[in-house]
Simulated assay, not measured.
Amino acid sequence: MSLHAMLVFSHARSLLEAVMATYDQKGCEVIAICAARILLDEAACVAWRFSAPPGGFEARATR
């Protein structure tokens, strides 16, 4: 697994933990929506980067 994929996974796990720790507190709706948007954006970016043809990953990784 690449360093980039590990960092994205760690970030996603951290966001999920933040949502789970605050789901029953006031204002949790805002945190949950923001975390969901960030996770979806990161998932789309990672899928786009790793779907590059051979030799094209470097160009996509430097966006």
Rank of each mutant, 00 (worst) to 15 (best):
residue 59 A to L: 12
residue 16 L to A: 03
residue 53 P to G: 15
residue 53 P to R: 14
residue 46 V to P: 00
residue 30 V to E: 14
residue 34 C to Q: 14
residue 39 L to P: 00
residue 3 L to M: 08
residue 9 F to K: 14
residue 48 W to H: 10
residue 51 S to I: 00
residue 26 K to N: 15
residue 21 A to D: 15
residue 48 W to N: 12
residue 16 L to G: 05
residue 5 A to D: 11
residue 7 L to H: 08
residue 53 P to L: 13
residue 54 P to I: 01
residue 33 I to L: 10
residue 50 F to P: 00
residue 40 L to F: 09
residue 41 D to E: 07
residue 10 S to V: 02
residue 31 I to Q: 13
residue 36 A to E: 14
residue 3 L to A: 12
residue 61 A to H: 13
residue 42 E to W: 02
residue 47 A to G: 03
residue 5 A to I: 06
residue 31 I to R: 13
residue 4 H to Q: 10
residue 56 G to V: 00
residue 19 V to G: 10
residue 48 W to K: 05
residue 32 A to G: 12
residue 21 A to I: 02
residue 22 T to G: 01
residue 8 V to L: 07
residue 9 F to M: 11
residue 24 D to S: 13
residue 25 Q to G: 11
residue 19 V to K: 12
residue 26 K to Y: 14
residue 33 I to M: 09
residue 2 S to L: 02
residue 18 A to I: 05
residue 39 L to V: 14
residue 60 R to T: 06
residue 46 V to K: 02
residue 20 M to L: 15
residue 29 E to W: 01
residue 22 T to K: 04
residue 43 A to L: 14
residue 52 A to G: 05
residue 19 V to R: 12
residue 2 S to Q: 04
residue 50 F to L: 08
residue 30 V to R: 14
residue 15 L to P: 00
residue 4 H to A: 11
residue 8 V to D: 09
residue 62 T to E: 15
residue 35 A to T: 10
residue 27 G to K: 03
residue 43 A to G: 08
residue 29 E to S: 03
residue 13 R to H: 08
residue 22 T to S: 09
residue 9 F to T: 14
residue 32 A to M: 10
residue 9 F to R: 14
residue 8 V to E: 12
residue 58 E to R: 05
residue 41 D to L: 08
residue 38 I to A: 07
residue 7 L to Q: 09
residue 36 A to R: 13
residue 21 A to W: 04
residue 63 R to N: 13
residue 19 V to S: 14
residue 45 C to Q: 13
residue 34 C to I: 13
residue 61 A to L: 08
residue 16 L to W: 02
residue 36 A to T: 15
residue 2 S to K: 02
residue 4 H to P: 06
residue 20 M to P: 02
residue 13 R to S: 08
residue 27 G to W: 04
residue 22 T to R: 06
residue 60 R to F: 05
residue 8 V to P: 13
residue 12 A to G: 04
residue 37 R to D: 15
residue 35 A to Y: 00
residue 15 L to R: 01
residue 61 A to F: 14
residue 6 M to R: 14
residue 33 I to P: 00
residue 52 A to I: 00
residue 27 G to I: 01
residue 8 V to G: 06
residue 43 A to W: 03
residue 4 H to L: 13
residue 50 F to G: 00
residue 26 K to E: 15
residue 53 P to V: 03
residue 54 P to T: 03
residue 46 V to M: 08
residue 1 M to C: 05
residue 29 E to D: 07
residue 32 A to W: 03
residue 37 R to E: 15
residue 7 L to A: 09
residue 45 C to T: 10
residue 12 A to F: 03
residue 23 Y to D: 12
residue 57 F to E: 07
residue 13 R to N: 08
residue 19 V to C: 15
residue 23 Y to E: 13
residue 12 A to D: 05
residue 54 P to M: 01
residue 45 C to H: 13
residue 12 A to W: 01
residue 2 S to N: 12
residue 39 L to D: 05
residue 62 T to G: 10
residue 8 V to I: 15
